[in-house]
Design a protein around this nucleic acid. Structure first.
Lengths: 115, 115
DNA sequence: TTTGTTTATCGTCGATTTACGATTGCAAAC
DNA sequence: GTTTGCAATCGTAAATCGACGATAAACAAA
């Protein structure tokens, strides 16, 4: 034995990891919430709501955009950011799949673990 | 204006970010799935299932443990890892809260975005 | 055209992450 | 008491992240 299975990682695992990574920073979670509540939309507004500089907020937006969770439309001199429904549909799906695989606490109590 | 709102970040935002960060790597997603399916449990088994070295797997387990998603029981010379039901309950809750805040695609189509 | 406003990008810095081999630590078995 | 086997830790190197100020780019208005 000893040699690896070289299983690499599933496509779903990689995508889920990318989404999770995008949400893996409090500022980005906060941005998502602000956009979800429509309390802010334009980059400048987000900067006012967050304890971060403009360039830092812009970078976080870039990462959220790269993960497909956010999209930005140019609106004159400013940019309006919104959540990307398609990306969130994928996120919902993948997170749901994972949570479905993880046995809930009840099942865990019923069936004893392997140890 | 100009000065930040110093809103800092919610406790929930930080916890969610920590959980998301722990899931922000394909190997850790894979580990969680292996543990969930009970296809493996002991560290050595995980190493055989993953294209990573023993020390790397051990580090990933440490991070998952720090995030409260995994717990390890010493069982003689080996260690048996299981998902931590309490941690996953929190994860379920926080992820659910966030997804509840994000309007689903249908609502998005009905109510036009801010731009 | 020029000016002003808004956002993206560049360059930089320190901190963190990811990965590995090598070493150490521990518990059981001999 | 040794030896054996498994897991954690150490040390290290490369890469990435997170943050910022400064600068560039895009566009509207004057």
């Amino acid at each position: 034995m000893a040699i690896h299975k070289r299983a690499e990682f599933t496509d779903a695992e990689q995508r889920l990891a990318a989404i999770a990574k995008a949400l893996g920073h409090p500022a980005r979670v906060a941005i998502v919430r602000l956009l979800a509540q429509r309390r802010a939309c334009v980059c400048g507004e987000l900067v006012l709501e967050l304890p971060l500089s403009q360039s830092t907020v812009s970078q976080h937006l870039k990462e959220l955009k790269a993960a497909g969770l956010v999209q930005g439309e140019v609106d004159g001199p400013r940019v309006c950011y919104c959540l990307d429904p398609a990306g969130w549909a994928v996120a919902r799906q993948l997170l749901g799949d994972l949570l479905a695989e993880v046995p809930p606490a009840a099942a865990e109590a019923a069936a004893p673990g392997c140890c």
